[in-house]
C-alpha cells in the first residue's frame, strides 16, 4: 500500500489497485504454473496494475497533479529491488502499533482524521479551529515522530537480542 500511495497519492486508487493486484495474484495461485520467485512476481504485478491505473486516471482527468514520471520510476525500482526481510517488516508493523498507542490523544486523533476519515487539511482545520497549513505541519511532525519512534524501537530490540 505504501508503494501504491507513493506513486498515486490517492488512497482510494491505491486500494483499488491493491484489490485488483490481489485478484491477479489469487488467480495465479490456482494455476499449475510454478512461480519461482513469488515475491518478485507479485511485486511486478502490483507495479503493472499501478501503472495501468495511473494511465487510466491521467486520461480521465487532465487536471490531476500526478507524480513526475522520473520519481515514479525511481520509486518503482526501489520498491522492486527492496529486499527488506519479512521479519523486519513485521517488527516495523508491531512497532508502529505500539507507537500509535503511545501517541498523545490529540495527535492520535489528528492521525485518525487524516488516515481514517480521509479528511482534507481544510476540513481538519475547520474541525480543530486551526489553519490548513498548521494542520499540514502538525501531521508532518507526527509522521516524523512515528517514524523515529519505530526506528528507535527496532534499534532497542536489536540491541537487546
Amino acid at each position: 500500500m505504501g508503494y501504491l500511495y507513493a506513486i498515486t497519492r490517492d488512497t482510494d486508487l491505491s486500494e483499488e489497485i491493491y484489490q485488483n493486484a490481489a485478484v491477479v495474484v489469487m488467480e495465479q495461485v490456482g494455476k499449475t504454473e510454478i512461480i519461482r520467485d513469488f515475491r518478485a512476481w507479485a511485486k511486478e504485478v502490483v507495479r503493472r496494475q499501478a501503472f495501468h491505473a495511473i494511465r487510466k486516471r491521467e486520461k480521465a482527468s487532465k487536471f490531476t497533479r500526478i507524480v513526475s514520471p522520473e520519481l515514479m520510476d525511481v520509486v518503482s525500482v526501489a520498491f522492486l529491488e527492496d529486499q527488506t526481510e519479512v521479519m523486519t517488516v513485521n517488527s516495523e508493523s508491531a512497532a508502529l502499533k505500539e507507537c500509535l498507542n503511545s501517541l498523545p490523544t490529540d495527535k492520535r486523533r489528528l492521525v485518525a482524521l487524516r488516515y481514517e476519515s480521509g479528511a482534507s487539511f481544510t476540513s481538519i482545520s475547520s474541525q480543530l479551529d486551526s489553519t490548513p497549513s498548521a494542520i499540514q505541519r502538525a501531521l508532518s511532525r507526527v509522521r516524523k515522530l512515528l517514524h523515529g519512534c519505530i526506528q528507535k524501537k527496532l534499534r532497542l530490540a536489536e540491541e537487546g537480542s
Binding site: 508503494y3 520509486v75 500509535l100 492521525v111
Partner: peptide, 26 residues
C-alpha cells in the same frame, strides 16, 4: 524512503480498516 513508504502504507491500511480512531486505540 522505503521505511517511510512502508509506514505510510500501514497507516493508510489501518485507517482504511477503521483501526485508527480513538475507540480502537489501546
Amino acid at each position: 524512503f522505503l521505511s517511510h513508504m512502508r509506514m505510510e502504507g500501514r497507516l493508510r491500511s489501518l485507517g482504511y480498516d477503521g483501526f485508527l480512531s480513538a475507540e480502537n486505540a489501546q
